[in-house]
């Protein structure tokens, strides 16, 4: 089935912008990114859009479609009625560069702050041995394609620009969880880092990150909440603190 759809696409930059209306052809099986490309090819040659794999694996074409953070390449046009207006805007949590392209460097700055995997002492590279049962929790978080939809929808930074300095966001809290759950990571201060440097206490578990994840990672239940519990072990549990003090054991 081919029909003409009504699209509204945000055009502009940091100086200002508007939603611009387009009437554009849609064919069966197409996704939102196809339509954006058709607009670019036929009506707005200067429309800026970031994309790469068109297969939901590179995380480049993140945008907000009808107000919901989505990968444009994974959003089928059949999701919407033929007479429905489809509104496409850039991610609203990050500074806009041009049209649908945003500056996501906040995320890379947060990524750089995380201490890297610390190899175990006395085990040479190539001699690492792990049980599958020990690594499978971490492996779930390795599915992340860094589309930053979770970062975009997280109200801690989306609704409060001033929190960006103190809060790393869900993508990097699961990175912390991934490393803390890694059977060979030698660092024992990941939970402290999550609390003191990544601001895990600012997360109030409203699970929007999980709702938008295109890889269906259980960000909150399997990553952030376990990290919050690990932080509670070390910083908020008086009985554990007493036990550690008496036995002079590290957390």
């Amino acid at each position: 089935m081919t029909y003409d759809a009504h699209f509204r696409v945000w055009r502009g930059d940091q100086e200002g912008g508007d939603l611009v209306d387009y009437t554009v052809e849609v064919n069966e099986g197409e996704v939102v990114l196809d339509i954006i490309h058709r607009i670019q090819a036929t009506q707005a040659g200067d429309l800026a859009v970031r994309w790469n794999c068109k297969a939901g694996k590179c995380g480049s074409c993140s945008a907000e479609v009808n107000g919901r953070p989505r990968l444009m390449c994974m959003t089928r046009m059949s999701t919407y009625a033929a007479d429905e207006t489809v509104t496409v805007t850039p991610l609203r949590a990050f500074p806009v560069t041009k049209d649908l392209v945003t500056d996501v460097s906040y995320n890379y700055a947060k990524a750089r702050q995380i201490p890297a995997f610390a190899p175990p002492v006395g085990v040479a590279p190539g001699e690492y041995r792990m049980q599958q049962v020990d690594v499978e929790r971490s492996q779930e978080f390795r599915k992340c394609i860094e589309c930053f939809l979770c970062q975009d929808t997280c109200h801690v930074v989306r609704d409060h620009e001033d929190n960006k300095e103190a809060f790393a966001g869900p993508r990097f809290l699961i990175r912390a969880a991934e490393l803390d759950m890694h059977p060979l990571d030698a660092r024992d201060d990941r939970a402290d880092f999550a609390r003191d440097e990544q601001g895990i206490g600012m997360c109030n578990i409203t699970k929007c990150c999980t709702e938008v994840c295109p890889e269906h990672i259980k960000i909150t239940d399997n990553g952030i909440i376990p990290m919050k519990e690990r932080v509670a072990d070390r910083r908020y549990d008086p009985v554990r603190w007493l036990g550690r003090t008496i036995t002079r054991r590290k957390a």
């Binding site: 502009g12 912008g17 939603l19 611009v20 209306d21 107000g67 805007t89 609203r92 949590a93 990050f94």
Partner: peptide, 30 residues
């Protein structure tokens, strides 16, 4: 193509989606 005005009065979201560097969209959600 035509332009749809989404400007208007300053949103009550000045510290969030209404921050000056972000895409200027007054609606608190679309």
């Amino acid at each position: 193509m035509a332009q749809t005005d989404v400007g208007g009065s300053a949103p009550d979201t000045a510290s969030g989606v209404g921050s000056p560097t972000r895409a200027r969209i007054a609606a608190r959600t679309l």
